[in-house]
Design a protein around this nucleic acid. Structure first.
Lengths: 113, 113
DNA sequence: TCCATGTTTCAAGAATCGTTGAAATGGGTC
DNA sequence: GACCCATTTCAACGATTCTTGAAACATGGA
């Protein structure tokens, strides 16, 4: 039996794994900075100092978890952060994982629930 | 040269790595549920269905990143979540990584900045 | 001291992950 | 078609991580 919780948990584990790498975390920050416009794969690669194949490998890993989306436009592939997916991860950490513990919320400058 | 940002980033990568494992994520949730009282290592092990050595390995990994703290009391070792550390990670994701993007905050039921 | 309990350490092996460079693919221009 | 540019795929290799069971360590009680 596979409960909703198990699925959520597996998804969270995958997302955390995606963020548990310096190259990927830097890529994500680049893409966040780029906003809704997104960035071409090659530009991300240059920005983080990764070879094309390395960049492709890590961008694919980010896309695999749904944290970023990709879209081909002519020759280039544009990657774009899925802000809702990141929000979902933060929500998981805050609500499901930490039960909205006031002390956690306080650390983020958030009002208690 | 090692900037503050690099240190922060390295710390975040380590924390995400700690959460990127089913056993450890379950342990963390157990410990959050246990609150300030914490839980003995053996109880955590039973709760997540891990052998003593496996539990010790993963609890040590969590402690290594500072997400949990340990304290020996008599024969037992009590593990306790460091709520501030988790809050710090959420804050990193929300502020440093996502620049407080309104769309991310909205997904967590947070007011825009 | 001897024994029982709780936890950590260790070594060995399997599995997963990340890097590299070369080759392949997709798509535009001449 | 021939050519170029952007990206992905692939195979090989090294590095890291996880699991397992046995042994060691720490502590308290008989």
């Amino acid at each position: 039996m596979d409960t909703t919780q198990d699925t959520q948990e597996a998804h969270a584990v995958a997302a955390f794994h995606a963020l548990a790498n310096e190259t990927r975390l830097r890529m994500l920050r680049c893409l966040v900075a780029a906003g809704r416009e997104g960035m071409a794969a090659g530009d991300v690669a240059r920005a983080v100092g990764a070879s094309p194949s390395r960049a492709s490998f890590h961008l694919a890993a980010l896309a695999e978890t749904g944290l970023v989306l990709s879209e081909r436009a002519a020759r280039q592939v544009t990657y774009r952060v899925d802000f809702a997916a990141i929000g979902g991860l933060v929500a998981y950490l805050l609500h499901d994982c930490c039960g909205n513990a006031p002390e956690v919320r306080r650390c983020c400058g958030l009002p208690a629930c």
